[in-house]
Amino acid sequence: MRHYLSNIYLGVYTALVGMRITFKQLLQPSVTHQYPYDRSFEQKKNIREIPKGYRGKLHNRIEDCIGCKKCEMICPVDCITIATQKLPKGERLWDSMNVVHLKDRTEIVGNIEGAEKPAPNTAVTIQTRDNRTVAVASEEIANVVERKPVIFYLDQFDIDMSLCMYCGLCTEVCPTECLIMFDNLSDGIEYSTFDRTDLIYEFAKPEMYEQPTDESTEAEAAD
């Protein structure tokens, strides 16, 4: 009997101890975001900021792709399909662009003017694809991805994002770092569709090779 009554007392008492903790929590601000409706957290950047380097949707900058098929081989679920044609021996279309990694974890895609490995204490100018010129000091540069010659026509470069498991192995093996994963909310995460076939992304652009004027200017720029 005594045990029974003390159990009731302890049950009520320990529940009240818990209630005190929950009551204190009641006075604190809520941590929940009503995400699809309330998107203010993107501006406030308080808790749910998508961090740099997040593994989101895959994207290929096809102009820099050299068709080495390393991503196709490493993919554990075979979601990348590549078809290439090799150019005659000794020929090349153009060079892929440099990717300059700065020490504050930003990346600049563009050709470094002059030597690819800049000397210390110099200003480095980088010519981007949309003809902008960016100048950075060589101390800020963490590492530079070197240019590689493009010696394949890319007939097909398809990524089936419905199969992708977001392991990121393909982006790590890419020698020109043209295969990337978007790390922002609008490109990398919010791309759901109603039709599964819409998730097959075709990156190959055959018209890239067909315009002789563009090709010659590209080749000149690369040289």
């Binding site: 159990n7 302890l10 049950g11 320990t14 529940a15 101890v17 818990g18 903790i21």
Partner: peptide
């Protein structure tokens, strides 16, 4: 621990 572990109802 105060909220759940020591709760008499949970222990029972």
């Amino acid at each position: 621990n105060a909220l759940l572990t020591a709760n008499r109802i949970f222990i029972e």
